[in-house]
Design a protein around this nucleic acid. Structure first.
Length: 310
DNA sequence: CCAGGTCAAGGGAGT
DNA sequence: ACTCCCTTGACCTGG
């Protein structure tokens, strides 16, 4: 069981402005319009170089699991990465990072954003979604990571349109048009509202049709159980990974942590406190907490007697 | 240097 | 019809 954290390293990101280490350099549209992919290239290269620093920092701390930010290439949908002025250096950097990560057993994953809507009927939406997913596949290929869900690209189904059966059929049809680079890595995650997809629904409507693994999210499960216990849903999801170690997501309620009922219950806490019960299953746990690796290390400290980092 | 306003995308939910 | 929220806050401007 490896513990992981997502996208931002607080320890390195909160250094002073010139020294900060981050993979999230970005820009608003106005800046992209005026400065274009030249500037995007600079930001992307700096992001890739800092990814290496984060992975090395993780290794030093004993952490073996990290979610890469989808903002590494700002405005990536608007250009071809291979045409960037810094492409040779970017490619070289990513190859070094990925091979280093593989050599030390450090797992890297992606979680593209909520605008990816594979169930859509709108060809423009499908184009945008495919484009975004393909970029994630391309970056994993540049990192020389395996075309398996070990390097997962995890998304939500994304829509129900009052007809989950039809939505999932669309999802599957559009899935089949994606490249091998994406299809081989794609996973789906259970949702945090009853109107969307429980683990059981993902199993029946997605996994049984196309065999892609399910990421079980503990916190989401409490809002959308599909009439399964936590253990049942976790084990159903874990059964879909076909030899690759499953990933689960863990977070706790911010509303309870901050003792503020006005915060919506789905929001994530700064830290996590409870022991994460995996019911004896060998899984990697992505801890989704606002304080990132600090939350991970604190969790490890609290539960040191029964938890290992990796 | 800082706080406050703003920011690509699609869908769902609350107003 | 409008606004906010979501993977993951970060960018930019005006003071």
């Amino acid at each position: 069981v490896a513990l992981g954290y997502a996208c931002i390293n607080m320890s390195l990101d909160s250094l002073n402005k010139n020294a900060k280490v981050t993979t999230n350099r970005s820009m608003i549209k106005k800046t992209f319009v005026s400065r274009g992919s030249q500037y995007a290239s600079q930001l992307a290269l700096a992001n890739c170089q800092d990814l290496f620093k984060i992975v090395k920092w993780n290794e030093k701390m004993g952490i073996k699991f990290f979610r890469i930010s989808s903002e590494m290439f700002p405005w990536a949908s608007e250009y071809d990465i291979k045409t960037l002025p810094d492409y040779p250096e970017i490619r070289n950097t990513l190859e070094i990072v990925g091979k280093y990560a593989q050599s030390i057993g450090h797992r890297l994953t992606f979680h593209p954003g909520p605008f990816n809507k594979l169930p859509s009927d709108d060809p423009n939406v499908i184009n945008n979604t495919s484009r975004d997913l393909e970029i994630h596949g391309e970056v994993f290929d540049l990192l020389c990571l395996p075309q398996t869900p070990f390097a997962k690209i995890n998304i939500h189904v994304g829509a129900a349109y009052d007809d989950k059966g039809r939505a999932c059929k669309n999802f599957i049809r559009n899935f089949k048009n994606l490249s091998q680079s994406v299809r081989s890595r794609l996973t789906v995650e259970n949702d945090d509202k009853a109107s969307l997809y429980s683990t059981r629904e993902l199993y029946n409507m997605i996994y049984l049709e196309i065999g892609i693994p399910i990421v079980f999210d503990y916190h989401h499960h409490t809002f959308c159980t599909g009439d399964q216990t936590e253990q049942e849903a976790l084990e159903l999801a874990a059964s879909t990974w076909n030899g690759i170690k499953p990933v689960v997501h863990y977070s706790e309620s911010r509303s309870l942590e901050q003792k503020d009922p006005s915060i919506k219950p789905q929001a994530h806490s700064d830290y996590v406190y409870k022991y994460i019960n995996t019911y004896g299953n060998d899984v990697d746990i992505m801890i989704e907490a606002k304080e990132k690796e600090l939350a991970l290390l604190k969790y490890y400290k609290i539960h040191q007697d029964k938890v290992t980092l990796a």
